[in-house]
Simulated scan of single mutants.
Amino acid sequence: MEVTGNKNITAESGQDITLTCRAPNNNNIIVLEWSRADLGEKYVLVFRDERFYPEQQHPSFKNRVDLQDRQMKNGDVSLILKNVTINDTGTYECRVVQRGTKRRKRAVLDGKPISIIHLHVDPPGQTGGGTEDGSVGLIVGLIVPAVLLVASVFGFVIYRKHKQQQSQDSYQPPVELQPV
């Protein structure tokens, strides 16, 4: 089997994402394995002989993964990963054994993956540019100088008027213009 997908996906922490994988030939799938190399002997998801094997699943994926189509119609063995965190960042591989193909042993499979997905999960509020925290900071960063500028201009205008008023009040005409 050839690798049919080698994708890069970026997600934001808290999202649900789908890692796509499609087995060729629409043969019945006997074994499905989603793995990540850094998990050691445990898997993201193992399906064999028409049932899931939670005991072979890495604890961080318990109750957070499911198949997009549990019947795996048309070879669709895509994985839904719920509520992703930055700890889910990694390279995911999808492998299958189908009825009528040679079965190999690893813990489960030894063949080449049919899909490789490089997932990068950003911390909350990091994707899409403007975040709530970032926009609050930006707004405060722009409003404070603007308020200070307006206050300075207003203060200067009042000061000038006051100074002008003082000079008019204290104005004494020259002696020759004063009435006698």
Rank of each mutant, 00 (worst) to 15 (best):
175 V>R: 11
159 Y>T: 11
39 L>K: 11
1 M>G: 08
64 R>G: 04
5 G>Q: 05
39 L>G: 10
32 L>M: 07
29 I>K: 03
180 V>L: 13
54 P>T: 09
163 K>A: 11
8 N>S: 11
19 L>K: 09
30 I>D: 00
4 T>A: 08
80 I>E: 08
45 L>E: 02
149 L>I: 15
1 M>V: 14
67 L>R: 14
172 Q>C: 04
131 T>E: 09
112 K>D: 14
1 M>F: 12
161 K>H: 09
129 G>T: 06
7 K>V: 12
105 K>V: 03
14 G>L: 11
48 R>D: 04
144 V>A: 08
40 G>W: 13
15 Q>W: 04
118 H>K: 14
117 I>Y: 00
77 V>M: 01
104 R>E: 11
153 V>C: 04
79 L>M: 09
68 Q>S: 10
102 K>I: 15
9 I>F: 05
174 P>E: 15
66 D>T: 15
31 V>P: 03
155 G>N: 14
119 L>V: 15
137 G>M: 13
179 P>G: 03
144 V>T: 15
92 Y>D: 05
69 D>C: 11
149 L>P: 05
38 D>L: 09
105 K>T: 00
47 F>S: 01
92 Y>N: 09
145 P>M: 14
36 R>Q: 10
27 N>D: 05
150 V>P: 02
119 L>M: 05
24 P>F: 03
39 L>S: 07
38 D>Y: 08
129 G>I: 14
3 V>I: 15
4 T>D: 08
70 R>W: 08
150 V>C: 04
76 D>H: 12
94 C>K: 00
12 E>W: 03
105 K>Q: 01
103 R>L: 00
180 V>I: 15
10 T>Y: 01
7 K>M: 10
1 M>E: 05
161 K>M: 13
117 I>K: 03
156 F>I: 06
4 T>P: 01
35 S>A: 12
93 E>R: 04
144 V>E: 08
157 V>G: 07
84 V>E: 05
99 R>G: 01
141 G>L: 04
160 R>Q: 11
99 R>M: 01
78 S>D: 07
26 N>Y: 09
109 L>W: 04
158 I>L: 13
47 F>A: 01
104 R>S: 07
38 D>M: 13
116 I>F: 05
118 H>F: 06
169 D>L: 15
72 M>A: 04
17 I>H: 05
39 L>T: 13
138 L>G: 02
24 P>Q: 11
131 T>H: 10
87 N>D: 14
10 T>M: 04
106 R>F: 06
125 G>S: 13
109 L>A: 08
112 K>G: 06
9 I>M: 12
6 N>Y: 10
119 L>K: 03
137 G>E: 06
99 R>P: 00
67 L>E: 12
64 R>F: 07
118 H>R: 15
